[in-house]
Amino acid sequence: MDTQTQRILTDDMIAEIRDMYQHFPVKKAACIEALKLIQKHHRWVSDQAVQELAEVLDMSPDEIDSVATFYNLIFRKPVGRHVILICDSVSCWIMGYEKIADYLKQKLGIQFGETTPDGRFTLIPICCLGTCDRAPAMFIDEDLHRDLTVEQIDAILERYP
């Protein structure tokens, strides 16, 4: 393999990033959008991706990382095939999200922030999902699951092989 094929940012991605920043006075303005783009393609943002993006945006890798690590939905560690984001904010707490979270931890055999050994699920607590009238709630990938009960969890998880 030559070095070109090992790059994370493809020519198409770089073109897309250039298109993002041309609307703004500085290239840096595309930083968050570019990190999201990398994550869309690779599911997480590696050190190498940070370095390559730094070159494209004329920023230092540290500067990119200061942005990447600020935002909780930019993943700087690998995640599983499916990411479970369970709301731990006040309305879901009142409605008993802890029971759901405990069941998920026990069933998957992992704690918050961890990925199952088979790489299937990553479990992360998240703040308010804005669906408090239907608490408790969680996201799995792009799907919002609401009015959760412990009894439903097995069936829900089966939909994510």
Binding site: F24, K28, A29, A30, C31, I32, E33, L35, K36, S66, V67, F70, Y71, N72, L73, I74, C127
Partner: peptide, 25 residues
């Protein structure tokens, strides 16, 4: 439209502006 990458502080208007500029909020 800009879709946020998370963090409650982005709702504060000056933090929001920093986020929109691609910076830490």
């Amino acid at each position: 439209v800009h879709i946020s990458a998370g963090r409650y502080i982005c709702g504060e208007e000056t933090a929001l502006i920093n986020a929109l500029e691609g910076k830490r909020a």
